[in-house]
Simulated scan of single mutants.
Amino acid sequence: MTSRPFPWSGFALALATATGLIILGLPTLPILLMLLVWAGSLWLVGGPPPPPVEKRKNGGISRENIGDLLEHSESPVIVIENGRVVIANLASRRLLGSHILGQDARMALRQPEAVSLLESGEDGVAIVRGLARRKDIWRINRQSLEGGLSIIEFVNKTAEADISRAHTDFVANASHELRTPLASILGYVETLREDIDDLDPKMGDKFLATIQREGLRLQQLISDLMSLSRIEAEKHDLPDHILDFGKLVDRATRDAAGDRAVRLDMDSHGDFSVGGDEQQLEQMVRNLVDNALKYGSEDQPVTVRLQPQGDKRVVLSVQDRGDGIAPEHLPHLTRRFYRTDPGRSRASGGTGLGLAIVKHIVERHRGKLAIDSTLGEGTKVKITLPLAE
């Protein structure tokens, strides 16, 4: 190991500087001490460099180090040697089980696509379904390392597939919902044009009323789709306006009821201030009250209650007294275009988006939505929102 050359030029400069200071008449002893310290620092600079980190004889990274590097990776990763799993990080053990260590990799993965990738002996990618659960989807990446090792990485694609499927379903459902009123409108318009001279005025008026009704339904559907799109785009933005929730609920409830207000049973306890988007909260209340009035019995009241839940939350509940909803439908009520009775919903002007809009508004306001229903007794929707501090 060679030493670095001593910096003679620096030492000469230090000596010349000290000599000049003595000639100028400055005290000799401090100058000699300063020269000594300077020379010592230059000696250290010119000393041998620290020894480099010794390289491994095999020129690679040990298996232990690979395991340490991969252990806490979020992605499941295994390392195989001669077809057997020699390293499995924490995420892979949670995915496939701790027993995979030392096991034949083909037995650990089992799926035909993964086995084909392993047996090929080449780097590549495979898409595997049902690796841990029936509907999950994983992309498996194989990459060869030195020393006969291969690293297998698992990338979960289930969420992407779910989003893509939900998007496809949404487009298909929206197209169907838009096509139905359009087909009705076009059919009646075509009839009117063909029989305009011989058509009975009363029949013509009936056709026009149908066209108007389907047109309004189409308008409402487009409006709800636009509302849902705006709410989803803003779902991560927490509203910061402080509102009097009691007054907002009272106003929105009466707006939604219109000439059905005689069926309302309002029950409010106290004043409540919440942080929220006024337009969205009004839309939420109107949707709930309109649903309760439409699907509840016409001779029974709809109860709208506002009450505190502890010191930090307020609960809005809207309860109708109608036919109720079967238990198997309850988990799906907030899905887009989901209807328990499609014919009745369309006849009453429903778009199938009302509760989906309510759910997204509640989520944006960091609240909770609960729906309880008993067949033959009615349905109760409860929304819990945090009070403004």
Rank of each mutant, 00 (worst) to 15 (best):
D265H: 12
I196G: 00
R364M: 12
V314D: 02
I222V: 15
R142S: 09
I22T: 07
V171G: 01
V171Q: 13
P386N: 08
R213F: 06
L109C: 07
E194G: 00
R93A: 04
R339S: 13
Y295A: 05
L21S: 09
G322S: 04
D68T: 07
A39R: 00
R133Y: 09
I80E: 05
L385I: 05
L24A: 14
S3I: 00
K57D: 14
Q300K: 15
K247G: 10
T253F: 01
R251W: 08
D195F: 15
L385G: 01
P181E: 02
N89V: 01
I163M: 05
I361P: 00
D320Q: 08
T303Q: 07
W138T: 11
M266Y: 10
P52H: 00
I231Y: 08
V79I: 12
D195R: 15
A14T: 09
S3D: 00
D250M: 10
I242L: 10
V86S: 07
T158E: 01
L228M: 10
L131P: 06
T191P: 00
S345P: 08
S9I: 13
P7V: 01
I242F: 05
V318D: 01
L330C: 08
P308W: 05
S75K: 10
E282T: 03
V79H: 02
D198A: 15
D311M: 10
